[in-house]
Computed example of a mutant assay.
Amino acid sequence: MRAVRQQSFGGRDALTLESVQKPTPGPQEMLIEVRAAGVNPTDTYYREGKVGDDTPLNQPTLPFTLGSDFAGIVREVGDHVTRFNPGDRVFGTGLHTGRTQQGAYAEYIAIPPSFVAHLPAAIEFREGAAIGLAGVTAWRALFDYGTLKPGAACLIHGGSGGVGHVALQLADSINATTLTTARSDDAQLLEQEFGADRVFDYHSDNLLAEVTAAVPDGVNVVLDHMSDEYLGLDIEAARFGGHIVTIGGADGHISDGFRARANELTVHFMTAANLVERPELPDVSAVLRQLAGLLSKPDLTAHVAHTYPLEEIQDAHRTMEEDHFVGKLVITI
């Protein structure tokens, strides 16, 4: 089979299309023919070897195949697999961690059912491949850690991004008030397609004043993908007892600890990789099943900005690192 492999960590030229042996599923695994694979920012970090050093996360060992998100068709199931059958349409996430060398940039993967959920019949493979990691991250941030409730207000930074545009729709699906930061030229799309109630230009010099004017009592939940830039603003914008959930950022420190304490804020740092790597956390498939239910309704869509064939994986990574786009990038296989 064809797979994008890495023999060394590095830039985009480290990604090479190779012919490798098709994996054989074990008793608790299933073989999936991959029809589409999502491209995520975290893929570039793993490609460069930046994950694992001085952290509890596992860096895959060389050589390995990149890619976390996938959608495809079950072709074989192990003797102990009961929830899936050959021919099932499925989608999933979690292959970017050190727990598996079976990355999604390949024609076949052999993985356990805990990574997988059934893909609704009306959903295309490319959309299924786009929703996994972004959807699981957004769900855990808003509902598991942010405890977002109907009628509450949330501020979602980066509403045009992979996680951001899904988070907006999840919040809107429970009738929360949705505020987001983004480029000004993305505002109309975010409001019309993804349910944003207010879009603030993240370049604004008066961003905090604009947010607090829109929600004078403060927001209940903040989802932050750049804690090194926005954590101070998050603390100012949150209401008493609010939750700040940060999913990214090279750094970030609490500069106004007194205000955070006085308002009894909860600041939670998280990574979706832990759902795969840490058995004490909920199963990835449980969240995927929730997302599948929303995909079956008008409540959720994964916006695919561009698709690429497998042999153009380097170009997909170039777009991820250098270009602006709304939503997700997907590899078709």
Rank of each mutant, 00 (worst) to 15 (best):
A37S: 14
I109V: 15
R259L: 06
F258A: 13
H165Q: 12
H303M: 10
L233P: 02
A110T: 05
G232N: 11
E29Y: 06
H324V: 06
V245Q: 04
L142D: 00
A238Y: 03
G158P: 02
Y202A: 02
A176K: 06
D201T: 00
L189H: 12
G72D: 04
L281G: 05
Q102F: 07
H303P: 02
R75V: 00
L207F: 13
S296V: 05
A272R: 01
R239T: 11
A117Y: 02
P309M: 02
W139T: 06
L207N: 07
D69K: 12
L288N: 03
Y46T: 10
T61Y: 07
L231Q: 02
V221S: 06
D88E: 10
A176M: 10
E312N: 13
R75S: 05
R99Q: 11
G132V: 00
F200W: 15
H268C: 12
D256W: 06
A3W: 00
S296C: 07
G52P: 00
R140L: 09
P86F: 06
P279S: 14
G242V: 02
T177H: 13
A153N: 14
D283Y: 08
G146P: 03
A273G: 11
Q290F: 04
L189E: 11
V81G: 01
E311M: 10
I174L: 14
A36F: 09
L233I: 14
R318S: 09
F9Q: 06
L148E: 07
K22D: 06
Y45E: 14
V304T: 04
T82R: 15
T307G: 12
L148M: 08
L133Y: 13
T82C: 04
M270N: 01
F194V: 02
G159Q: 09
H225F: 09
A121Y: 04
A187E: 15
R126K: 15
D43A: 09
V330C: 02
D53N: 06
P279T: 11
P112V: 02
V34N: 00
H243L: 03
G52A: 13
P216S: 13
V245T: 04
M30E: 04
A129H: 04
L62K: 08
R83L: 14
